[in-house]
């Protein structure tokens, strides 16, 4: 792969519309993580982060999609996940990333917890338009 991250061919899309889809998203991420040579601990961290983010997409965003693809940089392999919804968006990002904050029924660990489990974390949100969270986990 010469242009990692830009190659649309390896991208897998998972619809997130029901709680069964959260299970499917976890399974897809697990398969990719194993394929990219992530250690058992890193696999577990990434799958857990995916579970948190997929559930956020479902409960706060009103559903959406997860796109997942293997990436490569400087000889290291990894997995990139993007969770996109067209929900209400997040008015105060700093607040949303603080531990214990939650606008729904969760414990508020979703976003901030997921961020600690991955190597790269990017949050883009526009009020009334939607939210996209992109994370990357690299193999050690």
């Amino acid at each position: 792969m010469t242009s990692p991250g830009l190659d649309p061919e390896g991208t897998r899309i998972q619809l997130i519309a029901t709680s069964d889809d959260v299970v499917r998203a976890r399974q897809l991420v697990r398969t990719l993580a194993v394929g990219c040579g992530l250690s058992l601990v890193d696999q577990t961290k990434l799958v857990t982060a995916a579970s948190e983010l997929a559930r956020n997409t479902l409960s706060y965003g009103g559903g959406g999609t997860m796109s997942a693809l293997p990436v490569e940089r400087n000889g290291r392999r990894g997995v990139r996940l993007s969770f996109t919804d067209e929900g209400p968006g997040i008015p105060d990002i700093d607040l949303a990333l603080r531990d214990g904050w939650s606008s729904g029924s969760g414990m508020g660990l979703g976003l901030s917890g997921a961020r600690r489990l991955v190597d790269e974390f990017e949050l883009r949100t526009v009020v009334d338009e939607g939210t996209t969270v992109t994370v990357v986990k690299w193999s050690r």
């Binding site: 696999q43 577990t44 961290k45 917890g113 489990l117």
Partner: peptide
């Protein structure tokens, strides 16, 4: 509880 699960929970803050 598996070690990888425990490590992840600690990082998650649970």
């Amino acid at each position: 509880m598996r070690p990888a699960v425990a490590i992840t929970l600690v990082e998650l803050g649970l």
